[in-house]
Each structure stands twice: as structure tokens, then as C-alpha cells.
């Protein structure tokens, strides 16, 4: 959402893992062009990709948080101090002035691909 579309086209889509590498409701981290991207697979199979860096602690750990829902919104809780981040928008629900980047993610066949600039 924050990525300029031209940048996206330049970079295109990067395959990072296969769909079955992702456990339902648990994250993994992918390294794409030097960026750490946390990937999640929801219970219903929807994929999400957000920045792996926890803005509150500065540690790159969001992929290791617990995934769940808050009032229906899919979220991950930072494993460091438990702030919840929306997987759809990257906004921190406990501190809406803080957000992490979100990235486009898609499934091509069995392969999970992320788009980044």
C-alpha cells in the first residue's frame, strides 16, 4: 500500500517459499532484497506480508508472534511486548500512530510470492 507502483514493476514478484511451508496461523520470515518480510497464512488460507521489524523494540521478530483476530481483524502480536499489528494494514491497533509496512503477496501455483521495491 505504501509502495509506489513503478518500483513494484521494476522489482516484480519474488518467489519465497511453497504454500505448505507456511503453518496455519504461524509466521515465517523471508529475506527479499535485503528487507525482512514476515509472511502469515490465516486459518482460511489467506496470505499476508508485513515488515518483520517490531517498531517498539527495534528487533526483527514480528514473524514469530502469535496470529489471531481482534474484532474480526487479522492481527499478529509482537512476541516482544505483545502490541497487536493488523496484518491487512500494518497499523498497530494498540497505538494507531505506529505502523509497519505491508507488502503484496500472492500464490502462483504452490509458490508464495511477494512484491517489493
Amino acid at each position: 500500500m505504501t509502495v509506489l507502483s513503478e518500483e513494484l514493476e521494476q522489482a516484480g514478484w519474488t518467489p519465497v517459499c511453497s504454500y505448505t511451508d507456511l503453518l496455519p496461523e504461524r509466521g515465517v520470515c523471508a529475506l527479499v532484497g535485503g528487507r525482512q518480510i514476515a509472511l502469515f497464512r490465516a486459518f482460511d488460507g489467506t496470505l499476508f506480508a508485513i515488515g518483520n521489524r517490531d517498531p517498539f523494540s527495534g528487533a526483527h521478530v514480528l514473524s514469530r508472534g502469535i496470529m489471531g483476530t481482534r474484532a474480526g481483524e487479522p492481527v499478529v502480536a509482537s512476541p516482544m511486548h505483545k502490541q497487536a499489528f493488523s496484518l491487512a494494514t500494518g497499523v498497530c491497533l494498540d497505538d494507531p500512530a505506529t505502523a509497519v509496512p505491508t507488502y503484496p503477496v500472492r500464490l502462483t501455483g504452490e509458490t508464495v510470492e511477494v512484491g517489493t521495491g
Binding site: P55, R70, A71, E73, S86, T89, G90, V91, C92, L93, D94, P96, A97, T98, A99
Partner: peptide, 14 residues
């Protein structure tokens, strides 16, 4: 430190 992001009322359950 980023902007409002539009999520300001997400926690409001009413």
C-alpha cells in the same frame, strides 16, 4: 512514528 494510517478507531467496539 509513521502517520495516522487510518486505523485510529479500530479498537472501538461500539
Amino acid at each position: 512514528m509513521t502517520g495516522e494510517g487510518g486505523g485510529g478507531t479500530a479498537g472501538c467496539r461500539a
